[in-house]
């Protein structure tokens, strides 16, 4: 029983279909404090959908999402209160375009967490410094580059003091020279002990930074393990095939 308690997230038999297209098939998955989990796999394998289901941006068809042992898919559970504790960083940044960089990082703290304006500002500035975006507090999202937007998005999510941070292909929409600055920020976060779930195509990040790598294929978790094991000694033929294809292109 005490084993259940220590998991931040425990996902049981999660399934999701869009119409007749089954995207996730009976997924079981555990996230513990301090885990940095990279989810890799071909496009269309269900990685992003899994992440969006975990954050309830998509409603799963069946299964359980236990957050500290409480099923978030049960009746009477507030999705928004749960989301305030599980941050998310999107491929397309999704910064609020009607606000400045600083306002982006403050609005959630003020309206959702009920923090005072000076508190929220101090907290936002702390994380904006960490991601190196403090100089740009007065800029609007349309005035900064993709890499900078993503760093602000990370600061916005972190300012809410989430227990887990989900990253949905955070570098896929970036020009090559901006990928590095975002990965550097994510690496720092991981080293500071943040629990992270990262859907990514960046194999070097998965290999060097994560504590566990999950390989998804056709809506199931085909294989998972420590990066050293999965990258050097994959057991499934399809994992071997995927890694061979991706690694010869990337590394």
């Amino acid at each position: 029983m005490s084993g259940v308690e220590k998991h931040i997230l425990q996902i049981n038999h999660l399934s999701k279909a869009f119409g007749s297209n089954v995207v996730l098939k009976d997924i079981d998955f555990i996230v513990d404090k301090g885990d940095v989990i990279s989810i890799i796999g071909a496009s269309g394998s269900g990685k992003s959908t899994l992440l969006r289901c975990i954050n309830l941006l998509e409603t799963p068809n069946s299964g359980e999402i236990l957050f500290h042992g409480v099923n978030m898919l049960g009746r009477g559970v507030s999705a928004s209160r749960y989301r305030a504790r599980v941050g998310m960083v999107f491929q397309s940044f999704n910064l609020f375009s009607n606000m400045t960089v600083l306002q982006n990082c403050m609005v959630g703290q003020i309206r959702v967490l009920g923090r005072s304006r000076p508190d929220a500002k101090a907290h936002a500035m702390e994380y904006l410094e960490k991601v190196g975006m403090a100089p740009y507090v007065n800029a609007k999202p349309r005035q900064i580059s993709g890499g900078q937007k993503q760093r602000v998005a990370i600061a916005r999510a972190m300012a809410m003091d989430p227990e887990v941070l989900l990253f949905d292909e955070p570098t896929s929409a970036l020009d090559p020279e901006m990928v590095g600055e975002v990965l550097a920020v994510m690496k720092n976060l991981a080293e500071s002990g943040m629990t992270m779930l990262v859907v990514t195509h960046e194999m070097s990040f998965a290999r060097d930074v994560s504590t566990r790598v999950v390989y998804m294929c056709d809506g199931v978790i085909l294989e998972q393990g420590p990066p050293a094991e999965l990258f050097t000694n994959p057991r499934q033929p399809r994992t071997q095939e995927f890694l061979r294809r991706v690694l010869e292109r990337q590394l």
Partner: peptide, 29 residues
């Protein structure tokens, strides 16, 4: 609103184009 904004200080993390810097990885360029 205004199309310009005040920069408070230098941004140390932004790399200029071409100075790609990622642990153990290079680009085709």
């Amino acid at each position: 609103g205004s199309s310009s904004y005040e920069l408070v200080q230098e941004d140390a993390l932004t790399l200029t184009a071409g100075t790609y810097n990622h642990p153990g990885r290079s680009t085709p360029f």
